[in-house]
């Protein structure tokens, strides 16, 4: 099995540790991973702003970089959802459709493809799990509170395998944090208020760390936490699942 590692641009540039943890975790689980160096961005920032017609270059590039792999794995539910829903190409239609089927967010790849049942990680802290919307409602990584259906959560399933980790319950387990791409600046007031409320829910329940399968939500919440001089930290879920035994 060959896996192409797709690292969203802002993770590459701002959160290399999340990417390194993703790579190491996959390697630890015996997966052969390559990181195509010519990758840039999935095109979502443009598409969600209404400029999907400007994503042709990104789409072609993505196909060139990733078509050859058996699977494509990424530590971002949102970028994966964008590829799954919107990757298209007039010249390479078949490759595009093939990629849409074999692109996975990290945690769903671990639970559904690798069928991971145990991890060696230890993380002796109280952790709040933020359900990023695109991963949850788009990729269905966990059950949604709106639906009358049995609960499940792929990220939680994995976090439960981490030694000494205590998950805190939240009052609103799957409310959006308000990042929303361009929304976070175009609708600054509401975005910030949503983020503050989300952070407050985690703090209220005693979280020392907030984690998620999407770094963008965490970046937003981190910005608010830092401004509040909070000691609470954000960590991508890959960093917790890959946390070394101390």
């Amino acid at each position: 099995m060959t896996v192409g590692l797709f690292i969203p641009c802002y993770i590459d540039q701002f959160y290399p540790n999340a990417a390194i943890a993703t790579l190491k975790l996959l390697q630890k689980l015996g997966v052969k991973v390559s990181y195509p160096l010519q990758q840039t961005c999935c095109g979502q920032p443009m598409a969600n702003s209404g400029f999907e017609h400007l994503t042709t270059g990104c789409n072609e590039l993505f196909i060139d970089n990733f078509a050859a792999f058996d699977y494509i794995v990424s530590p971002s539910g949102s970028c994966v959802l964008h590829i799954k829903d919107h990757l298209h190409s007039d010249g390479q239609a078949e490759k595009a459709s093939c990629i849409r089927k074999k692109v996975y967010e990290l945690t769903e790849f671990l639970t559904d493809i690798l069928k991971v049942e145990k991890l060696t990680a230890r993380f002796p802290h109280k952790v709040g799990m933020h359900q990023s919307c695109h991963g949850q409602r788009g990729l269905m990584m966990s059950q949604m509170t709106e639906l009358v259906a049995p609960p499940f959560s792929k990220p939680r399933q994995l976090l439960n395998m981490v030694k000494d980790l205590e998950l805190v319950e939240l009052s609103r387990p799957d409310e959006c944090c308000g990042f929303g791409g361009t929304f976070c600046v175009a609708e600054e007031a509401v975005s910030v208020k949503m983020g503050k409320d989300r952070v407050a829910d985690h703090l209220h329940h005693g979280a020392q760390y907030i984690t998620a399968a999407d770094m963008s939500c965490l970046m937003h919440m981190e910005g608010l936490l830092r401004r509040q001089n909070s000691q609470v930290k954000v960590l991508h879920i890959a960093e917790i699942l890959n946390a070394e035994e101390v």
């Binding site: 802002y10 993770i11 540039q13 290399p16 990181y35 600054e188 910030v192 983020g195 937003h220 910005g223």
Partner: peptide
């Protein structure tokens, strides 16, 4: 700087993942 009004910017790390 609509981001910065109420949020800190992410810290720029020493090196990118690439």
């Amino acid at each position: 700087n609509a981001w910065y009004t109420q949020r800190d910017m992410p810290a720029v790390p020493q090196q990118s993942f690439s």
